[in-house]
Computed example of a mutant assay.
Amino acid sequence: MPVATKTRLLSLDVFRGATVAAMILVNNPGDWGHIYEPLEHSAWNGCTPTDLIFPFFLFIVGVSVVYAMESKAEVKTNHSKMLWSALRRMVILIAISLITQLLFHPGFAHLRFPGVLQRIGVVYFIGTVLFIKTSQRTRDVLFAVLLTGYYIVMVWIPVPDTGKPSLDPETNMGAWVDRVVFSTNHLWSESKTWDPEGLLGTLPAIATCLFGIRVGSWLKRKDRDDAVKVSWLFTYGIVAIIVGLVWGLFFPINKALWTSSFVLYTGGWATVTLALCYWVIDVHGHKNIATFFVPLGVNAITAYVLSSYIPHYITNKPYFGGKSLYKVLFEPYFQLYVGSALSGLLLVFIIWGLMYILYRRKIVIKV
């Protein structure tokens, strides 16, 4: 469908596009046995650059909700239509994930129910409901309740399986809830006992979206000039990083658990990054740096979905003399870690090329 005529926040498209590019890169190394440390997730506690990617995307979802819906949300007669649209989008995202799994690995017996697109869909829908139906003050209170409530549940309430609180992978409250609700047959294939996109962890993930909604609402204010907006955002972001680090001493920063400290720490970095992009691109007009990332940002979900299909059906298949593209182009000519990273980078450029064609034709594929 044609690109909407309303003004887009170019820095947000750049930020979203860069996040999607990073997501494609880290999810598709040429050799999973040879990955540079910054391109891997933390083994458990801690935060690598790769751990920032998913929370950045959910933060961007929150900012995008404000820019896409604020004017419509002011008219109450639009609310029903907006909510049904958000519900439809959530269902489609969940369906895309489940259908993709079934195409790659036919059969329902071990179909993974939680997942990245599932979490994006659920968080988007709940974030939309909260943005349309509640005030910013109410959302701020809910943000605090989600983070403190999740901390209490995870750190102080005994897990039924063990009779004591735990933050370890298989014995924490979130893992227990996932096993009860989904059973071990429908969790992350690497463990079958817990899931990094589990049910309980979606609650603080909603807080990440609320973080983005607050930042988006501040950016759209017309009673403050750009210098004040950016100064406030940098301050807000830095304070969140510091509070996240301090809270991390008691409730460790952990992506798989999506801990409250992780929400604040990553939300702070997302705020600082968006503020920098906004100041450089939208305020000072350095739009030339946006050329590469905007096509990925405009069709972000399409790019992400293709990053699953293209490797499965093309680049990872032994079509090239019985070898994959990585083994033909990179393994013989580069040091293993370099070749593995370059293979992922090649996929980024392949998908960028496809998104660029859509962008030039003014096509935005919306779910």
Rank of each mutant, 00 (worst) to 15 (best):
316 N>G: 02
64 S>F: 13
188 W>D: 06
39 L>Q: 03
26 V>I: 15
317 K>N: 05
5 T>H: 13
186 H>N: 08
123 V>Q: 03
276 L>M: 13
279 W>D: 11
75 V>R: 12
75 V>E: 14
18 A>V: 13
331 E>H: 08
43 A>E: 14
232 W>D: 06
272 V>Y: 06
10 L>G: 03
18 A>N: 06
146 L>D: 03
68 A>L: 15
160 P>L: 12
175 A>T: 06
66 V>L: 13
224 R>C: 03
296 L>N: 02
289 I>Q: 05
94 I>L: 10
65 V>A: 06
69 M>R: 09
262 F>P: 02
277 C>I: 05
16 R>M: 12
185 N>R: 11
62 G>C: 10
218 W>A: 00
342 L>D: 02
300 A>D: 00
53 I>T: 03
367 V>Q: 07
150 Y>N: 10
357 I>N: 04
354 L>E: 09
118 Q>K: 04
5 T>E: 14
148 T>W: 15
311 P>M: 07
75 V>H: 14
93 L>K: 01
256 A>I: 07
37 E>K: 10
198 G>A: 07
334 F>H: 01
164 K>H: 10
352 W>L: 09
20 V>R: 04
185 N>C: 08
321 G>S: 08
365 I>P: 01
295 P>T: 11
186 H>V: 04
2 P>H: 15
143 F>R: 05
320 F>S: 00
178 D>R: 05
34 H>W: 11
99 I>N: 03
242 I>K: 08
364 V>G: 00
139 R>W: 13
176 W>K: 00
167 L>V: 00
362 K>G: 05
359 Y>L: 02
291 T>D: 07
367 V>N: 07
184 T>D: 05
268 G>Q: 14
271 T>S: 15
361 R>Q: 12
